[in-house]
Nucleic acid binder design. Structure first.
Length: 375
RNA sequence: GCGUAAUUGGUGAAGUGGUUAACACACCAGUUUGUGGCACUGGCAUGCGUGGGUUCGAUUCCCACAUUACGCC
């Protein structure tokens, strides 16, 4: 399926662009941040909550749903949207390739695919480009991802060179397996780590396969921000302007701005929800840890001018109490706030692309986000 | 009043005549980037009821006192 993406406006001072893509769920504006809902749920949040934080496209994980409840059950339910009753927007599924990286201690990578052990049962499992596409077909997501290898950081040039070649071969196989599906867009993934020549090669070869969109993968695996930004810069010039660009697994508020300035359209990241579960909240003045003693008697909202449910209704002292007491409402309120923080940040980014003031916005944001903390 | 036992950080506790008093919880702080959700990493008793004594050295041995628990009158 051709994902109908178009660029509305390109920033003349950076590589940023405003765009939109159409699906049966409506028109979706880019840049966009996608919350992560691995197990067919953005942890602790209801569909209603997601609507209220202006989530649009969300990400779900092939590997987890494959193991439990199983793609056939999701399929029987009528697909992911029906199963989880998410009708706010599209769902993008990961290929399971990242698990090859995150479960690295038990992996065996072969040309045909990857063997690894289920973290639930210990059972030996096999995932291949074809299998990944088949599972994603059954899950019925709107955007599916090509099966790739996500090598760790640091990684030698030699290993990475072999890895990207294999990922390209896997991409070809996935593309062939996908031919049958008319209703799902398929994205290719550029790898290559920190190496300019490999990012370039990976991008060029992947683009030759003509995917519906392209992602920059293999970032946010432990490298510095500078290296991550460079990896984007190495790949983006070879990606077609009329296709959506997705930076996988990113990121921090500042990374969203830097990513957009480098030509990225969509992002996903577990940070807002994971940080929430650990008691952290984003604010314009930096990340704060609600567990800190100083919030015990702080009866103000996390951010005065935030329009999220948590800030409209509850104080830091109350949320701190919930987090310290291990009450799930605390995780939920912070997840609501953190996702809204990022979707609002993206809204601001769009405004500043429109005004061509993104660089000034970035600098001001950075100063406030990091600056006041260091004093 | 007598006897017995106990007394270690916020809590539960381990321990030894000799460098930094174990561990857990709590507390304090930090980490977290295509999620193996509810995790991980640090910090946290200058002191072992109080006062004496023995000893080169005592939280550890001895004495007195205090407190607590149980039993007896």
């Amino acid at each position: 399926m051709d994902l109908q993406f178009k660029v509305i406006k390109s920033d003349s001072k950076t590589n940023a662009r405003l765009g939109e893509y159409k699906t049966k769920w409506g028109v979706h504006k880019t840049p966009m941040f996608m919350p992560v809902g691995t197990q067919a749920t953005v942890k602790t949040l209801s569909t209603e909550d997601l609507k209220n934080v202006y989530a649009d496209t969300i990400l779900s994980n092939t590997y987890h749903l494959w193991l439990r409840p199983g793609e056939d059950i999701v399929n029987l339910a009528g697909g992911l949207h029906e199963f989880m009753n998410y009708k706010n927007g599209p769902i993008l599924t990961d290929s399971g390739g990242y698990q090859v990286f995150s479960l690295a201690n038990k992996k065996d990578i072969y040309e045909n695919g990857v063997y690894f052990k289920s973290h639930l049962s210990g059972e030996k499992l096999f995932l291949s480009p074809e299998k990944s596409i088949e599972i994603q077909n059954k899950l019925g997501s709107d955007i599916i991802m090509s099966f790739d290898e996500c090598p760790p950081y640091p990684c030698s040039h030699e290993y990475m060179a072999n890895s990207i070649d294999r990922t390209i071969r896997w991409a070809k196989r996935g593309k062939i397996a996908h031919k049958k599906s008319e209703s799902q867009a398929l994205f290719g993934i550029v790898q290559g780590g920190e190496f300019e020549d490999l990012r370039k090669k990976s991008a060029i070869e992947t683009v030759k396969l003509d995917f519906d969109g392209y992602s920059v993968g293999g970032v946010s695996v432990g490298e510095s921000k500078e290296i991550m930004y460079k990896a984007i810069d190495y790949a983006v010039p070879y990606l077609p302007k009329d296709k959506i660009r997705y930076l996988m697994g990113v990121g921090d508020p500042i990374d969203l701005i830097e990513g957009v300035m480098r030509g990225i359209d969509i992002f996903d990241c577990v940070s807002p929800t994971r940080l929430a579960r650990h008691g952290n909240a984003y604010t314009r003045s930096g990340k704060i840890n609600l567990r800190n003693n100083k919030y015990k008697t702080d009866f103000n909202p996390i951010e005065e001018d935030c329009d999220c449910y948590a800030c409209k209704n509850h104080t830091k002292a109350y949320i701190r109490h919930l987090i310290v007491s291990d009450e799930t409402l605390g995780s939920r309120l912070l997840s609501i706030h953190n996702i809204r923080f990022l979707t609002k940040l993206i809204e601001d980014i769009r405004i500043h692309i429109e005004d061509e003031t993104l660089i000034e916005f970035r600098d001001a944001f950075k100063t406030k986000y990091y600056g006041e903390k260091n004093e």
